[in-house]
Amino acid sequence: MIKQTELAELGEFKLISRLTKNFSATHKNTVYAIGDDCAVLAKTKQAHTLITTDLLMEGIHFDLMFTPLKHLGYKAVVVNLSDIYAMNGTPEHITVSIAVSAKFTVEALEELYEGIALACKAYSVDLIGGDTSASLTGLAISITAVGTVNPKSITYRNTAKKNDLICVSGDVGAAYAGLQIMQREKTVFQQSKGAQPKLEGYEYSIQRYLKPEARADVIQNLADASIIPTAMIDVSDGVSSELLHICSQSNVGCRIYEERIPIHKNTQKIAQEFEMEAIIPALNGGEDYELLFTIPIEQHEHIKTIPDVHIIGSITEQEQGLYMISRSGSPIAIQAQGWTAFE
């Protein structure tokens, strides 16, 4: 009898690799298929097409006890657009497919689509189609985003080089911190009938979780400064996980520095309340949708002029491994401990 493998034994990315190992591109215009934030299709000499898709499942990716449907619709679009930006591209179109159970009213779905429409307006994206289906288990949302990118400026995960600087936009860990607050208040509400959630003072982190933004501004600022990253990825699963993707696919190592990781004061406050080091959600939290990228060291002075971008380390030889240097100067091995599917 053939041994059956549990999904949790492989995890999301090893599962994808196993399921798709026998597939190869047969069309000449397939520039890049599986393995990055987007697939890349040749279009013209001046523009390639980027395609990405994400599936959000109720109970896995969102909890409707504390996620307003309008926020969910907005977020579902943004997480896809973030993938387009992570390839240094510009999103243009989306399709939206949903599966809904009978517990949802027409008005509830209209609220979901209000959020989708708001995101489309904010990022100048057109909704061009989709599908609807019944569901027995709640709500599922699948969005496909299509964008364009100049072939000369397209940025993959697998092209980081030794001595490149490692940069991250914004701050990291806030979305995870916001989720912890929402889950805590949900528990209090369930255990104490009629208890009202205490959300004052946590607005920043809650906003980062419920209504994230894709960093279109960073992509524009990099273009204005004539900076093309050597590698880039968006922070959906955590800085540690994303760094591992870049380094493993680029066959390099890295050194990042704890003191340089940008952490918002609200994230620090929440981490303290939950008795954990703020660096833990910063490295492993995920859902920040910031951009993590590398640039040639020669661009050091130029990158310092870009608002809200932080240099957190550098790329090394692969043999030197992946380490974070703590505030005390100790090297700590970087491991992917962020969100994983099937666990």
Score class of each variant (00 low, 15 high):
residue 3 K to G: 05
residue 5 T to Y: 13
residue 7 L to D: 08
residue 7 L to K: 12
residue 17 S to W: 03
residue 17 S to P: 02
residue 26 T to W: 07
residue 28 K to F: 11
residue 29 N to R: 12
residue 34 I to L: 08
residue 34 I to F: 12
residue 40 V to Y: 04
residue 40 V to W: 02
residue 46 Q to F: 15
residue 46 Q to W: 13
residue 46 Q to E: 15
residue 52 T to M: 06
residue 61 H to Y: 08
residue 66 F to G: 10
residue 67 T to M: 15
residue 68 P to H: 07
residue 68 P to D: 14
residue 75 K to E: 07
residue 79 V to Y: 04
residue 92 E to P: 06
residue 93 H to S: 07
residue 94 I to C: 01
residue 97 S to I: 08
residue 107 E to A: 06
residue 109 L to F: 03
residue 115 G to E: 09
residue 118 L to N: 09
residue 119 A to V: 01
residue 136 L to H: 13
residue 141 I to V: 12
residue 147 G to A: 07
residue 152 K to H: 15
residue 160 A to P: 01
residue 161 K to W: 00
residue 167 C to N: 04
residue 168 V to Q: 04
residue 173 G to R: 01
residue 174 A to Y: 10
residue 176 Y to L: 08
residue 178 G to Q: 02
residue 179 L to F: 09
residue 181 I to L: 10
residue 186 K to M: 15
residue 187 T to D: 14
residue 191 Q to W: 08
residue 198 K to W: 05
residue 203 E to R: 13
residue 203 E to I: 09
residue 205 S to E: 15
residue 206 I to H: 05
residue 208 R to W: 06
residue 209 Y to N: 09
residue 211 K to C: 11
residue 212 P to W: 04
residue 213 E to L: 13
residue 216 A to Y: 14
residue 230 T to W: 01
residue 242 E to M: 01
residue 243 L to M: 04
residue 245 H to A: 03
residue 246 I to E: 00
residue 247 C to Q: 02
residue 261 I to K: 02
residue 261 I to R: 01
residue 261 I to H: 00
residue 263 I to E: 00
residue 275 E to L: 11
residue 276 M to E: 13
residue 283 L to E: 05
residue 285 G to Y: 04
residue 296 P to M: 05
residue 297 I to K: 11
residue 298 E to Y: 08
residue 303 I to C: 08
residue 304 K to A: 14
residue 307 P to A: 13
residue 308 D to I: 00
residue 314 S to F: 06
residue 317 E to K: 04
residue 318 Q to A: 13
residue 321 G to W: 07
residue 325 I to F: 13
